[in-house]
Nucleic acid binder design. Structure first.
Lengths: 114, 114
DNA sequence: GCCTTATATAATAAAATGCTTATATACTAG
DNA sequence: CTAGTATATAAGCATTTTATTATATAAGGC
């Protein structure tokens, strides 16, 4: 059930440019699994809130995520209808589930109450 | 025949960091198809010889390519035994074969005598 | 309305990137 | 040995990136 390859050099490199950053790669991994609000992500990654917001803005600019406002929170999740979907999923599927950083992140994710 | 995913965050992002540059992405596409010597690549891409050499060095540092000296030339080709092979091939397979930059490059490749 | 919380944006400084020019190295031909 | 070609490396510079701090915006509770 492979999708036809049809990304331009520009679109492809734009996407890789987003995912080459470790924080953004792992963050995207999480966002493909479930939605998160910004404050949850800030608690999980060791960077400031503006840094997270800026990463999220990059995803959004590339149509990789949906943003949904609910009350005073904004929830983000992977946009499964984006044209880069296959690419993103293939890249993320290459990530070792036992990778130290990923494992650590997942355990933090469980502990968070926001 | 999918290969087991087992790349660390570090290895994965290192590879994406190499491929996010349009020149390096297209160059890698060519190198997965056949071997090239540096002067051929210089003629195909619109950058200086040192720029090409520097791109090639990045591949080599990440074990993505083999380098073979023959006479005064150095031939480069994709290293099919590298651990990032599946990742690289999946990424490259997402590239539209009709992409303008790729098509232009291929036509130049045919014309080159080095 | 006012205060608090959640989030985005702006400004800025530090680091990384990728190109160019200049130079070094290595092989070939004579 | 010398000159020419192929390639790598070094140095320098302009641009981009990313994080931080400071500030703005927007919603919720009182």
């Amino acid at each position: 059930m492979t999708v036809t390859a049809a990304l331009s050099t520009e679109k492809l490199t734009e996407t890789l440019k987003i995912l080459y950053d470790p924080t953004r790669l792992l963050l995207m991994k999480l966002l493909t699994e479930k939605e998160y609000c910004v404050c949850e992500l800030v608690d999980m990654f060791e960077v400031s809130q503006p840094a997270i917001s800026q990463h999220l803005r990059k995803y959004k600019k590339a149509s990789l995520v949906y943003e949904e406002r609910r009350g005073q929170w904004r929830y983000y999740r992977f946009n499964k209808t984006c044209e880069q979907r296959a690419l993103v999923e293939q890249i993320l599927s290459q990530l070792d589930e036992n990778d130290e950083q990923l494992v650590k992140l997942r355990s933090k994710a469980e502990a968070i109450t926001c």
